[in-house]
Protein backbone atom coordinates (compact mmCIF):
# COMPACT_ATOMS: atom_id res chain seq x y z
CA UNK A 1 0.00 0.00 0.00
CA UNK A 2 2.23 2.80 -1.24
CA UNK A 3 0.47 6.11 -1.27
CA UNK A 4 1.50 8.21 -4.25
CA UNK A 5 -0.74 11.20 -3.92
CA UNK A 6 -3.27 12.31 -1.35
CA UNK A 7 -5.41 15.31 -0.61
CA UNK A 8 -6.93 16.16 2.76
CA UNK A 9 -9.83 18.57 3.08
CA UNK A 10 -8.89 20.46 -0.05
CA UNK A 11 -11.00 23.26 -1.39
CA UNK A 12 -10.68 25.71 -4.22
CA UNK A 13 -12.36 29.02 -4.68
CA UNK A 14 -12.38 31.18 -7.78
CA UNK A 15 -12.89 34.64 -6.36
CA UNK A 16 -16.03 34.40 -4.28
CA UNK A 17 -17.19 31.18 -5.88
CA UNK A 18 -16.37 28.05 -3.93
CA UNK A 19 -15.83 25.41 -6.61
CA UNK A 20 -15.02 22.48 -4.31
CA UNK A 21 -14.61 22.09 -0.57
CA UNK A 22 -13.58 19.55 2.04
CA UNK A 23 -12.43 16.83 -0.34
CA UNK A 24 -10.16 14.02 0.82
CA UNK A 25 -8.86 11.09 -1.21
CA UNK A 26 -5.70 9.13 -1.84
CA UNK A 27 -4.13 7.52 -4.87
CA UNK A 28 -2.39 4.24 -4.04
CA UNK A 29 -0.01 2.29 -6.25
CA UNK A 30 -1.79 -0.59 -7.92
CA UNK A 31 -5.25 0.80 -7.21
CA UNK A 32 -7.89 2.65 -9.17
CA UNK A 33 -9.51 5.68 -7.59
CA UNK A 34 -12.74 6.56 -9.37
CA UNK A 35 -14.05 10.09 -9.16
CA UNK A 36 -17.71 10.26 -10.06
CA UNK A 37 -20.05 13.15 -10.39
CA UNK A 38 -22.49 14.86 -12.66
CA UNK A 39 -21.59 17.91 -14.76
CA UNK A 40 -20.72 20.77 -12.42
CA UNK A 41 -19.95 18.48 -9.49
CA UNK A 42 -16.37 19.75 -9.33
CA UNK A 43 -14.58 16.93 -11.15
CA UNK A 44 -12.58 19.24 -13.41
CA UNK A 45 -11.52 21.47 -10.54
CA UNK A 46 -10.29 18.45 -8.59
CA UNK A 47 -8.34 17.17 -11.63
CA UNK A 48 -6.75 20.57 -12.03
CA UNK A 49 -5.57 20.44 -8.42
CA UNK A 50 -4.26 16.88 -8.74
CA UNK A 51 -2.44 17.61 -12.00
CA UNK A 52 -0.85 20.82 -10.77
CA UNK A 53 -2.80 23.27 -12.94
CA UNK A 54 -4.27 25.00 -9.85
CA UNK A 55 -2.97 25.06 -6.30
CA UNK A 56 -5.70 24.35 -3.72
CA UNK A 57 -6.94 27.36 -1.73
CA UNK A 58 -7.32 25.27 1.40
CA UNK A 59 -6.39 21.84 2.71
CA UNK A 60 -3.18 19.90 2.23
CA UNK A 61 -1.72 17.77 -0.51
CA UNK A 62 0.91 15.09 -0.18
CA UNK A 63 3.06 13.60 -2.93
CA UNK A 64 4.87 10.38 -1.99
CA UNK A 65 4.03 11.08 1.63
CA UNK A 66 5.58 14.56 1.66
CA UNK A 67 3.45 17.66 1.94
CA UNK A 68 3.85 19.50 -1.36
CA UNK A 69 2.22 22.17 -3.44
CA UNK A 70 2.28 21.37 -7.14
CA UNK A 71 2.55 24.72 -8.84
CA UNK A 72 2.55 23.63 -12.49
CA UNK A 73 1.76 20.62 -14.66
CA UNK A 74 5.55 20.33 -15.16
CA UNK A 75 5.92 19.93 -11.34
CA UNK A 76 3.31 17.21 -11.37
CA UNK A 77 5.04 15.42 -14.26
CA UNK A 78 8.38 15.61 -12.47
CA UNK A 79 6.72 14.03 -9.44
CA UNK A 80 5.47 11.23 -11.69
CA UNK A 81 1.88 12.35 -12.02
CA UNK A 82 0.72 12.41 -15.64
CA UNK A 83 -2.65 13.57 -16.90
CA UNK A 84 -4.26 12.18 -20.04
CA UNK A 85 -6.77 14.73 -21.27
CA UNK A 86 -9.79 13.98 -23.41
CA UNK A 87 -8.19 15.15 -26.67
CA UNK A 88 -5.16 12.91 -25.85
CA UNK A 89 -2.64 15.34 -27.32
CA UNK A 90 -2.05 13.24 -30.43
CA UNK A 91 -1.57 14.30 -34.07
CA UNK A 92 -3.93 12.12 -36.17
CA UNK A 93 -1.92 12.07 -39.41
CA UNK A 94 1.39 11.19 -37.77
CA UNK A 95 2.55 7.59 -37.39
CA UNK A 96 1.96 5.91 -34.05
CA UNK A 97 5.64 5.84 -33.07
CA UNK A 98 6.18 9.51 -33.87
CA UNK A 99 3.16 10.37 -31.74
CA UNK A 100 4.43 8.21 -28.92
CA UNK A 101 7.65 10.25 -28.70
CA UNK A 102 6.31 13.64 -29.83
CA UNK A 103 7.97 16.36 -27.75
CA UNK A 104 10.39 13.89 -26.10
CA UNK A 105 12.17 12.43 -29.13
CA UNK A 106 15.15 10.12 -28.73
CA UNK A 107 18.18 11.31 -30.65
CA UNK A 108 21.66 10.15 -31.54
CA UNK A 109 24.73 11.73 -33.13
CA UNK A 110 26.38 15.07 -32.48
CA UNK A 111 26.17 18.67 -33.65
CA UNK A 112 24.32 19.28 -36.87
CA UNK A 113 24.19 15.54 -37.50
CA UNK A 114 22.08 14.99 -34.39
CA UNK A 115 19.17 12.95 -35.64
CA UNK A 116 16.21 10.91 -34.52
CA UNK A 117 16.95 7.42 -33.31
CA UNK A 118 14.12 6.03 -35.39
CA UNK A 119 14.95 2.36 -34.88
CA UNK A 120 14.96 2.66 -31.10
CA UNK A 121 11.77 4.73 -31.10
CA UNK A 122 9.91 2.25 -33.30
CA UNK A 123 11.03 -0.71 -31.20
CA UNK A 124 10.21 0.92 -27.88
CA UNK A 125 6.80 2.14 -29.05
CA UNK A 126 5.89 -1.29 -30.33
CA UNK A 127 7.09 -3.00 -27.17
CA UNK A 128 5.39 -0.55 -24.79
CA UNK A 129 2.11 -0.90 -26.66
CA UNK A 130 2.42 -4.68 -26.61
CA UNK A 131 2.73 -4.49 -22.83
CA UNK A 132 -0.57 -2.63 -22.76
CA UNK A 133 -2.03 -5.46 -24.79
CA UNK A 134 -2.20 -3.62 -28.13
CA UNK A 135 -0.42 -5.47 -30.86
CA UNK A 136 -0.09 -3.26 -33.89
CA UNK A 137 1.16 -4.90 -37.03
CA UNK A 138 2.58 -1.57 -38.08
CA UNK A 139 3.64 1.34 -35.86
CA UNK A 140 3.97 3.37 -39.09
CA UNK A 141 0.22 3.68 -39.48
CA UNK A 142 -1.22 7.12 -38.72
CA UNK A 143 -2.61 7.23 -35.20
CA UNK A 144 -5.89 8.52 -36.66
CA UNK A 145 -6.51 5.04 -38.06
CA UNK A 146 -6.62 3.52 -34.56
CA UNK A 147 -9.88 3.19 -32.70
CA UNK A 148 -10.72 5.60 -29.90
CA UNK A 149 -9.90 2.99 -27.27
CA UNK A 150 -6.54 2.16 -28.81
CA UNK A 151 -5.60 5.83 -29.02
CA UNK A 152 -6.46 6.17 -25.34
CA UNK A 153 -4.19 3.21 -24.64
CA UNK A 154 -1.33 4.79 -26.62
CA UNK A 155 -1.71 7.93 -24.51
CA UNK A 156 -1.62 5.84 -21.31
CA UNK A 157 1.38 3.81 -22.48
CA UNK A 158 3.18 7.03 -23.39
CA UNK A 159 2.57 8.47 -19.91
CA UNK A 160 3.80 5.26 -18.28
CA UNK A 161 6.93 5.07 -20.44
CA UNK A 162 7.91 8.64 -19.58
CA UNK A 163 7.98 7.81 -15.90
CA UNK A 164 4.46 8.27 -14.58
CA UNK A 165 3.71 6.57 -11.28
CA UNK A 166 0.17 7.85 -11.19
CA UNK A 167 -2.00 8.68 -14.17
CA UNK A 168 -5.08 10.83 -14.17
CA UNK A 169 -7.57 9.92 -16.89
CA UNK A 170 -10.08 12.64 -17.68
CA UNK A 171 -13.31 11.01 -18.84
CA UNK A 172 -11.54 8.47 -21.07
CA UNK A 173 -14.71 6.54 -21.81
CA UNK A 174 -17.24 9.32 -22.24
CA UNK A 175 -16.86 9.76 -26.00
CA UNK A 176 -16.76 6.04 -26.73
CA UNK A 177 -19.28 3.35 -27.59
CA UNK A 178 -19.97 0.42 -25.29
CA UNK A 179 -17.42 -1.87 -26.90
CA UNK A 180 -14.63 0.70 -27.07
CA UNK A 181 -15.31 1.79 -23.49
CA UNK A 182 -14.84 -1.76 -22.27
CA UNK A 183 -11.52 -1.90 -24.15
CA UNK A 184 -10.38 1.20 -22.28
CA UNK A 185 -11.46 -0.34 -18.98
CA UNK A 186 -9.22 -3.30 -19.77
CA UNK A 187 -6.28 -0.95 -20.31
CA UNK A 188 -7.03 0.75 -17.02
CA UNK A 189 -6.96 -2.65 -15.29
CA UNK A 190 -3.69 -3.41 -17.07
CA UNK A 191 -2.12 -0.16 -15.89
CA UNK A 192 -3.33 -0.90 -12.35
CA UNK A 193 -1.86 -4.41 -12.45
CA UNK A 194 1.51 -3.03 -13.49
CA UNK A 195 1.60 -1.10 -10.21
CA UNK A 196 0.40 2.30 -11.31
CA UNK A 197 -1.93 4.46 -9.31
CA UNK A 198 -4.87 5.37 -11.54
CA UNK A 199 -7.34 8.20 -11.11
CA UNK A 200 -10.34 7.51 -13.33
CA UNK A 201 -12.79 10.35 -13.78
CA UNK A 202 -16.19 9.50 -15.17
CA UNK A 203 -19.88 10.15 -14.75
CA UNK A 204 -20.84 6.57 -15.56
CA UNK A 205 -21.19 4.19 -12.56
CA UNK A 206 -21.29 1.23 -14.95
CA UNK A 207 -17.79 2.08 -16.14
CA UNK A 208 -16.42 2.92 -12.72
CA UNK A 209 -17.72 0.06 -10.61
CA UNK A 210 -16.06 -2.95 -12.29
CA UNK A 211 -12.57 -1.44 -12.39
CA UNK A 212 -12.49 0.79 -9.28
CA UNK A 213 -11.05 0.10 -5.83
CA UNK A 214 -12.07 3.35 -4.17
CA UNK A 215 -14.90 5.67 -5.13
CA UNK A 216 -15.19 9.36 -4.48
CA UNK A 217 -18.65 10.68 -5.26
CA UNK A 218 -18.99 14.41 -5.81
CA UNK A 219 -22.02 16.60 -5.91
CA UNK A 220 -22.14 20.39 -6.18
CA UNK A 221 -18.50 20.72 -5.20
CA UNK A 222 -18.61 18.55 -2.07
CA UNK A 223 -18.00 14.91 -1.35
CA UNK A 224 -21.13 12.88 -0.82
CA UNK A 225 -19.16 9.79 0.05
CA UNK A 226 -15.77 8.15 -0.16
CA UNK A 227 -16.14 4.38 -0.29
CA UNK A 228 -14.12 1.26 -0.53
CA UNK A 229 -15.49 -1.17 -3.10
CA UNK A 230 -16.60 -3.54 -0.30
CA UNK A 231 -18.92 -0.87 1.12
CA UNK A 232 -20.71 -0.16 -2.12
CA UNK A 233 -22.97 -1.80 -4.66
CA UNK A 234 -23.57 -0.41 -8.12
CA UNK A 235 -27.24 0.26 -7.27
CA UNK A 236 -26.29 2.23 -4.18
CA UNK A 237 -23.75 4.22 -6.18
CA UNK A 238 -26.23 5.05 -8.94
CA UNK A 239 -28.77 6.16 -6.38
CA UNK A 240 -26.28 8.33 -4.54
CA UNK A 241 -25.14 9.90 -7.76
CA UNK A 242 -28.50 10.75 -9.16
CA UNK A 243 -30.10 11.45 -5.81
CA UNK A 244 -32.73 8.84 -4.91
CA UNK A 245 -35.54 11.34 -4.46
CA UNK A 246 -34.84 13.08 -7.75
CA UNK A 247 -34.84 9.79 -9.61
CA UNK A 248 -38.19 8.66 -8.23
CA UNK A 249 -39.70 12.05 -8.99
CA UNK A 250 -38.34 11.81 -12.53
CA UNK A 251 -39.72 8.29 -12.90
CA UNK A 252 -43.17 9.54 -11.97
CA UNK A 253 -42.91 12.47 -14.35
CA UNK A 254 -41.89 10.28 -17.24
CA UNK A 255 -44.48 7.62 -16.65
CA UNK A 256 -47.21 7.38 -19.27
CA UNK A 257 -50.64 8.37 -18.27
CA UNK A 258 -53.01 5.50 -18.98
CA UNK A 259 -54.55 5.79 -22.43
CA UNK A 260 -52.12 8.52 -23.58
CA UNK A 261 -50.30 6.28 -26.08
CA UNK A 262 -51.14 7.50 -29.55
CA UNK A 263 -52.19 4.88 -31.99
CA UNK A 264 -50.03 5.32 -35.10
CA UNK A 265 -52.00 2.90 -37.22
CA UNK A 266 -55.23 4.78 -36.95
CA UNK A 267 -53.45 8.06 -37.79
CA UNK A 268 -51.99 6.68 -40.97
CA UNK A 269 -55.20 5.19 -42.20
Amino acid sequence: MTEILSVTNVGKSYGTVLAIRGISAEVIAGEVLCILGDNGAGKSTLIKILSGVHAPSEGTMKVNGVETILSSPRDALDAGIATVYQDLAVVPLMPVWRNFFLGSELRKGFGIFKRLDTTAMRTIAKQQLAEMGISLRDVEQPIGTLSGGERQAVAIARAVYFGAKAIILDEPTSALGVKQASVVLKYIAKARDSGLGVVFITHNPNHAYPVGDKFLLLKLGASIGYFDKSELTIEKMTKLMAGADEMSTLATELERKPGSRPSRKSEKE
Binding site: D87, A89, V91, P92, L102, R107, R115
Partner: peptide
Protein backbone atom coordinates in the same frame (compact mmCIF):
# COMPACT_ATOMS: atom_id res chain seq x y z
CA UNK B 1 15.16 12.41 -39.50
CA UNK B 2 15.38 15.27 -37.04
CA UNK B 3 13.42 16.40 -34.01
CA UNK B 4 12.67 19.68 -35.76
CA UNK B 5 10.97 17.72 -38.54
CA UNK B 6 8.86 15.83 -36.05
CA UNK B 7 7.83 19.14 -34.53
CA UNK B 8 6.94 20.59 -37.95
CA UNK B 9 4.54 17.70 -38.57
CA UNK B 10 3.17 18.07 -35.04
CA UNK B 11 2.60 21.82 -35.24
CA UNK B 12 0.83 21.55 -38.59
CA UNK B 13 -1.14 18.43 -37.74
CA UNK B 14 -2.56 19.38 -34.35
CA UNK B 15 -1.47 22.72 -32.97
CA UNK B 16 -2.97 22.34 -29.49
CA UNK B 17 -1.65 18.81 -29.03
CA UNK B 18 1.81 19.96 -30.11
Amino acid sequence: RTRTGNWIFGVGGAFTSA
